[in-house]
Simulated assay, not measured.
Amino acid sequence: MEHFALGHWLLVLAYLTSVVGCALGLACAVQARHAASPRHRMRWLVLAAISIGGVGIWLMHFVAMLGFSTPGMPVRYDVFRTVLSAILSVSSVFAGLVVVGGRAKFGWWRLALGGVITGLAVNLMHYTGMSALRVKGDFGYEGGLVALSVVIAVVAATAALWFAVFLDRLSLRLLAGFVMGAAVTGMHYTGMAAIRMNMNMNAPDPAGVEVFSFLFPVFVLAAIAMAVPLCAVLMAPPIKPEAPAAVPAEKAVTV
């Protein structure tokens, strides 16, 4: 079993893919908090979920799996479960963002709950996507590393949401993209390290499709998933800083 059959450059590409998707999605989440109406807020959160869940998480997983192989034996994927993993990723991230980014007022409980939901969305996508894997044999997971992958995703996702949504400096929002990208990538390879495969040379070739057979449509959809939120963010008016609360004038003292 190999994770870098095409070279370690794929790790860098997967990480940068996640950073771009997460940073763009978190920028949309910031816009959602300052939206003029609930309808506009939901639109921004949908764009954020597509960017983070579809590109930052699912596409990163897809890119990383290009380097997965079982030398001398075929690897196939179930298309339905692969598509299902993308849908679950986007919808789960949306749920987390609604909790943490759907209000303009800060709340620690919203941040914690949103971080847990978003972090678990990373794990949900990964292990659902891995259930689509078909090899000559079967495989399971080491429980300790699976638990570690969950912790990595939840902690880093919570930190990224805090950086992006509750701090005003652009540099910290960009840093949030790198933090969340590290969470997604670190969770992926921790989850892959947890795999324990039992290969069987005498087993029939697995059913399904090769990963490269749907490479083109995936990247076309990914380009659209990034282009729409990017255009929306670039065309959005600049966020105005919140005006400080008015201080009531002191009443005149009557002598």
Rank of each mutant, 00 (worst) to 15 (best):
G7Q: 06
W9F: 07
V12L: 13
L13R: 07
A14Q: 07
Y15E: 04
S18R: 00
V20K: 05
G21A: 08
C22Q: 04
C22A: 14
L24M: 14
A27H: 14
C28A: 15
A29C: 12
A29L: 09
R33C: 05
L45D: 06
L45V: 05
A48Y: 08
A48H: 10
A48K: 08
I52Y: 00
G53Y: 02
I57P: 01
I57F: 00
F62D: 00
A64H: 01
A64C: 04
M65K: 08
G67P: 12
M73N: 10
M73Y: 11
R76F: 09
Y77M: 04
F80A: 15
T82P: 01
L84Q: 05
L84C: 03
A86G: 04
S92R: 08
S92N: 07
V93C: 13
A95M: 09
V98A: 11
G107K: 12
R110M: 05
R110D: 10
A112E: 06
G129V: 02
G129D: 02
V135D: 13
F139Y: 13
G143M: 12
V146I: 14
A147N: 11
A147R: 12
A147M: 13
S149R: 05
V150A: 13
V151Y: 06
I152H: 08
A156Y: 03
A159S: 08
A176C: 03
V179I: 10
G181K: 01
A182R: 01
T185Y: 07
T185C: 11
G186D: 06
H188C: 10
Y189I: 06
M192H: 03
M201Y: 13
A203D: 14
P206Y: 05
A207C: 03
E210S: 03
V211G: 11
F212I: 14
V218K: 14
F219P: 12
F219Q: 05
F219G: 08
L221P: 01
A222P: 02
A223C: 08
A225C: 10
M226F: 10
P229Q: 01
L230T: 10
L234G: 10
A236F: 04
A236D: 10
P238I: 00
P244H: 13
A245Q: 14
P248F: 01
A249Q: 12
A252G: 11
V253I: 14
V255T: 15
